[in-house]
Design a protein around this nucleic acid. Sequence first.
DNA 1: CGGGCGCTTGACGGCAATCAATCGTAGTGG
DNA 2: CCACTACGATTGATTGCCGTCAAGCGCCCG
Lengths: 210, 210
Amino acid sequence: MTCSETILRDDHDLISRIGVPMSFAKDEEIYGQGERADLVYRMISGTVRTSRFMADGRRPIGDFYYPGDVFGLETTGSHSMAAEALSDCVILAASRQAMLAAGGEEELKDLMWDATVRDLESAREHLTLLVRKSASERVASFLLGLAQRRGETAVELAMGRQDMADYLGLTIETVSRMITQLQSSGVVEFESCRRFRVRDREALEDLAAA
Amino acid sequence: MTCSETILRDDHDLISRIGVPMSFAKDEEIYGQGERADLVYRMISGTVRTSRFMADGRRPIGDFYYPGDVFGLETTGSHSMAAEALSDCVILAASRQAMLAAGGEEELKDLMWDATVRDLESAREHLTLLVRKSASERVASFLLGLAQRRGETAVELAMGRQDMADYLGLTIETVSRMITQLQSSGVVEFESCRRFRVRDREALEDLAAA
DNA sequence: CGGGCGCTTGACGGCAATCAATCGTAGTGG
DNA sequence: CCACTACGATTGATTGCCGTCAAGCGCCCG
């Protein structure tokens, strides 16, 4: 982990104002499960996933975080999940103490509120995704979600098949099969296994719907 | 829906101070999906479930709320899910306006923060439950959760099999089979279909574990 | 006593997990 | 530059769990 100097700063945001930019390499751990949570992070570039290791090897994924997202807040004092870089990342980090000193309690509260609300909405969306029964619906929803997060037609997948599978509650083989299926029905097109393009948005929405 | 007079009030809580007690009969709707959310509720007695109706008939359950819980807050202005009484209920209701006038912004913010944090933790727990693959693990986790929420050994099930099934992402038949299975292995004992007792807590924890 | 409703049980089929092999791409060393 | 390796993704074959359909049971209430 190294520090970088040339980072765009948005002075309207508390973290952006006092945060320290840090770089993480792919697969590097940002914090571990169980560690004390005294830093708050804001994504500048790259993608991060939070996950928890379970005794039997299953690995539920909490969430993915993209540029602009704030993460690392916990309602308790310690991290219930670990955070890892899915790709090379640049992340601003700021301590609660420093933020209190720099911006005051009010601004810190607002920041925490926004991040928590976002986490809650994300968790709810994830829940409805998991309750959807069929594997194809889950995969379709996931791809659609990515596609509408970025406006573009061609979307880069930040994560590999295993991470998708963990997030969707499926196996990597099933995810792969569903993707193949979506492709052969002409709904999406994978240029490479990490990059796809929506060919028939309406059909994709129908498959994702419910 | 009728109003009741003789309700215990806890004056340390904003809702308790100015809330209006309301009674709901079993299966009565407290608010509907899509309605404007300007009231906040606090359970006094009974149980409430929030759920969303989907086009194909599936009905994901958001959460169950028990005495003491606060619900009805939304991060947007309207209710994304409906709330219904699972049993006869008494609930305190207070409008945001009235709470602002009576307690001030600070106290309302604190209230919303606590309720939102609770919702988030609950959603995360629900997520790990759904990612658990096997039906028996889900049912075991659910029963264990209920058992540790109430300290007692004998637990009353507030909801029917259908609500359990919706919450667990299973069918009512599968839930029933798993319960039978748990019973015949001596882990729990159902005195009636709405009331059970944990016979071997350690075994139940093992089954729920992961 | 009879009807209705919710729960349980049974038989069967389908979908996704598992096991296993192959393919494709990227990275490495000759 | 090209083999060779390694790893992730895909595809195939088979198993097994859970959903579906259907019947039976128990309980409450009229």
